[in-house]
Write a protein that binds this DNA or RNA. Structure first.
Lengths: 233, 233
DNA sequence: TCATCAATCAAACGATTGTTTTAATCATAC
DNA sequence: GTATGATTAAAACAATCGTTTGATTGATGA
């Protein structure tokens, strides 16, 4: 509800649209979210999206760009910090994992500034079939993924790189579901009511590191005893 | 291309529509897949969907029902087999995990009968915001999840149930990405060309078991050394 | 041979989609 | 005060959406 006489600066309307779109994309997905839903929620005119962004697709890109650039900037900063501490030595896998996935969960815990909303959207989007969004994600992620994979390769020289790549992929999946969180969990256990986001990070981190350091397939019987784990921490 | 004179049995058209819809849902998502795309690919008339299924939403449900019922039937059968072998004793976590996730990957490896297509669709749908699909999934999954969680609770009596629930959730995420597979992986590593689906199962299984058996958060420093792991296999 | 009925077809339905147009409105600088 | 440029507003755009209609087809059993 806004007084029609009071005028907003351009950037205010732009930001309101971005926030509204972000929230609606989480709730309904890209396709099911209409321009009218967005502008209505943002208290803006239907033409405002095309005026400020050009098209709906461009708006989607901008929603991602705004948050993703910041997320990967923080990730790389965290990695830089760890590498500076290590002083040339290979990092522990746990430090690398925490720099990448911990930063993401940190952002997801920030409910005040919309970080939570966005991270739920992001986690789902990796597997989403929308062509141009996927390509955009790939470009935006390229640098961060390259550096983190390189760090993991250094940290785990005895593990085949292909295996590390797959496990990184698995970890992304676990994180994605962790952030999607309670909603998807209630799908399994209706009674679930643990609303403690501060406990999520250690929970996920234990799981991820356990998976990353698991014995390689073929070495020892996975179901019997995990001897000869080639990973280290 | 079908001769207009030759007549198809009702079920043939129905199945062609289901197959076409399944494939298109994977490729474009639910909303972006139109009735005309489906009927065109199925070589059927635009009215055929509403005639055979009633509505688009009902078609979506039927796409899931057809495969999901069979998947969970196999899962429960695998669990029954393990429990019969154990003869009353608690199962090893590895057996439980393999019965649940191994069966899924088995189905995903079946490219001949559309299992692969469907599993990619399924993995994405857990985090998809489409309301009625999620509710349908919850109902269809209820029995299997209940029995597998109960088996895990028995297998890991020292681990808090809440923790098991979360780790089961994380495992679902890893599996989902594993099946989404190479497509999503290429998002990170463009050069990736490992098309060896038979190696995926042991890879994923090692990772999942490593995560499930990881030291609990709070017990020992996750990044330092995983002593005092309360899980067993 | 004819009635029956499930299945298919072309065509159209109203509703809604993203986008564009044209005019009105505001703050600002001269 | 007035011209300028950016923003907002209402209305309409063509296109496409899921769905429905009414006619037609072809196999089946009496």
């Amino acid at each position: 509800m806004r007084a029609p006489t009071e005028r907003q600066s351009a950037s205010e309307t732009r930001d309101r649209i971005l926030d509204a779109a972000e929230a609606l994309f989480v709730e309904h997905g890209f396709e099911a979210t209409t321009m009218r839903m967005i502008t209505s929620r943002a208290d803006a005119n239907i033409a405002a999206v095309n005026y400020h962004f050009g098209s709906k697709d461009a708006l989607i890109q901008e929603v991602f760009k705004r948050r993703l650039t910041e997320l990967n900037r923080r990730r790389l900063a965290a990695l830089d910090r760890q590498e500076a501490e290590a002083g040339g030595a290979p990092l522990k896998p746990s430090r690398i994992v925490e720099a990448f996935f911990g930063t993401a969960l940190e952002m997801a815990a920030d409910t005040a500034h919309g970080g939570h909303t966005f991270m739920r959207l992001l986690g789902r989007t990796y597997t989403e079939p929308n062509g141009f969004v996927r390509q955009f994600l790939a470009e935006e992620y390229a640098e961060a993924v390259e550096r983190f994979l390189a760090a993991l390769y250094r940290a785990l020289p005895d593990v085949p790189r292909e295996e590390i790549l797959w496990r990184f992929h698995f970890m992304m999946g676990a994180m994605s579901y962790a952030i999607a969180g309670t909603d998807a969990l209630q799908l399994f256990a209706g009674k679930f009511d643990d609303a403690a986001p501060e406990r999520l990070l250690p929970r996920l981190m234990s799981f991820l590191l356990g998976g990353l350091r698991a014995p390689l397939p073929g070495q020892g019987v996975p179901g019997e005893n995990g001897r000869g784990a080639p990973t280290r921490q």
